[in-house]
Amino acid sequence: MKPFVVAVVAAVAIALGASVLLGAVQELAYQKFQTSAVRLSSPGTNLVGLKWNGDPTPADITEMTRDKAEEERLDAKGS
């Protein structure tokens, strides 16, 4: 009985270790299967931001970009 209990505990411990390692190494499915052919519209009107760093700040939002975003939203709604 004792080897069985120790074996189950060891299996769970190794599995937890594997989950931590895999979490660090593996990419999520949406990352691994993505392609670089995604159209992101113009910088400033999407989540990329003017600096293309994925971190748009409120300062990035100008009247021009706001108008362009609104225009694209209406176009998408119309189509």
Binding site: F4, A7, A10, A11
Partner: peptide
């Protein structure tokens, strides 16, 4: 021995 049984049961449980 104990190691053999441990190995068997760990593999079997998984």
């Amino acid at each position: 021995n104990v190691l053999e049984r441990f190995t068997h049961w760990m593999t079997a449980a998984c």
